[in-house]
Write a protein that binds this DNA or RNA. Structure first.
Lengths: 232, 232
DNA sequence: TTCACAATTTTGTTGCAACAAAACTGCAGC
DNA sequence: GCTGCAGTTTTGTTGCAACAAAATTGTGAA
């Protein structure tokens, strides 16, 4: 008679629902920059794009909106957010706290295999930067970060971080031209890899925090320039 | 022709939708312990309880589930989560990071009025504890914490913290009997109030971290006892 | 009692139509 | 050019029915 839900090893795999698929697809489009900041989304348009009915499309939009990846610009208007200075600062502070925590935990679990994987990802970033394939560099950059965060063994934390990346993701695509004047984040990543190899949590955290702050500076500058341009 | 969504002061107030109302109501029930860990929820039952159709009920459940406040115990079974040791640890680590950050930011903005408000909330907690009205004590305890966190001026951070509280909320209601053997969190709260008055961010953070860790210890003990009881 | 298994009931998902409300368009009037 | 405003179109929300699939119940055998 006793109910006994979710034991420790609860790995039931539900068949993916249409709404989930729509959600994943939209998430990827947002990260990859298909939908740029300011882009307006409608239920019916998404439904048509993804070839599903309005219900799953609406589910996906609502879910993204509740995560902050989309915002309401009006009662019936959902857009990809354009981050202002305050929002940018808030996200960055939160990222520092959460990604910092993930780094410290990750350092305790890193193996030589993980170190190799990171080096390999970094090579992909480097060559993408060299060939000015910025979108691809951004993508591998994300993989690099999350390869580390996943080592923390804290899956819920990783998804919280993911939702933060979803918020800044679109804005990153506005940094393209000046993006690789100096190789974006390369040095920080190198230090991070070393720190992970040495299982030095504090150093890993510091390197990644540095990386986050560097990105923040660039975004803030771009944001200020945009605001100045608008009011002028 | 240029779109110009979400300016700095974007305070458009949309009339509340049924789905949002359902979401709020369920959130409150979860925090207040109406739905206990293990409680199974169905779309139609919720719809009937809240007197709406299935669509808003389903919206609310899905949203709560995507926040982690509800979990899938099977493909068609949504329950209030029963936290195991690992989940408890993960949430606590995240809480320390996020609530710690909120404290540090809050300390920079505290006013004498805020200090008075906190003292008043603490009085409510005290008398509720004295009269063994635990659910009420828990409620005011939440208000105390969030009164501080809101001072951070970081609204998105506050909602992230809220979703974490939603996850542990139900479990707290299992601590009732031994809950006030020693006054729960009172000393830490007193220190926190002083720290806020002095705008001492580090102390405020330390006091609240202490509070979080104390709650963690109790929950962990209860969780271990429960697991031992189950397998025996 | 315990287990297996089939019949039955309950459940979530999906698609869709109706409705009210918001967004948009175009046109005067300044 | 810009502003204000009506008419028109588009939009999100809601309720609901159908369907497939999962959960539950009941039955019988070991």
């Amino acid at each position: 008679m006793a109910e006994n839900p979710n034991e420790s090893s609860d790995l039931e795999r539900a068949p993916e629902k249409l709404g989930d698929a729509a959600y994943r697809e939209m998430k990827e489009r947002i990260i990859r920059g298909v939908y740029r900041p300011g882009h307006k989304l409608t239920v019916r348009a998404i439904a048509q794009d993804l070839d599903v009915s309005t219900t799953p499309a609406r589910d996906a939009i609502n879910r993204l909106a509740s995560e902050g990846a989309l915002v309401y610009a009006g009662p019936k208007t959902v857009v990809v957010p354009v981050l202002d200075a305050a929002a940018l600062r808030e996200i960055t502070l939160t990222r520092l706290a959460l990604e910092g925590l993930a780094c410290e935990q990750a350092a305790q679990h890193g193996t030589p295999d993980n170190v190799e994987e990171l080096k390999s990802l970094q090579r992909l970033i480097n060559s993408a930067l060299d060939e000015r394939r910025y979108a691809e560099a951004l993508w591998h950059n994300k993989e690099f970060h999350f390869a580390i965060y996943r080592l923390s063994g804290l899956p819920q934390l990783v998804s919280m971080i993911e939702s933060l990346w979803l918020r800044i993701g679109p804005s990153l695509h506005n940094l393209y031209p000046e993006f690789a004047e100096e190789k974006y984040g390369v040095r920080n990543h190198e230090i991070a890899v070393e720190a992970l190899a040495e299982r030095d949590g504090a150093s890993l955290r510091a390197a990644m925090e540095n990386d986050i702050r560097d990105g923040y500076r660039r975004l803030k500058r771009a944001s200020l320039e945009r605001e100045a341009g608008q009011s002028a």
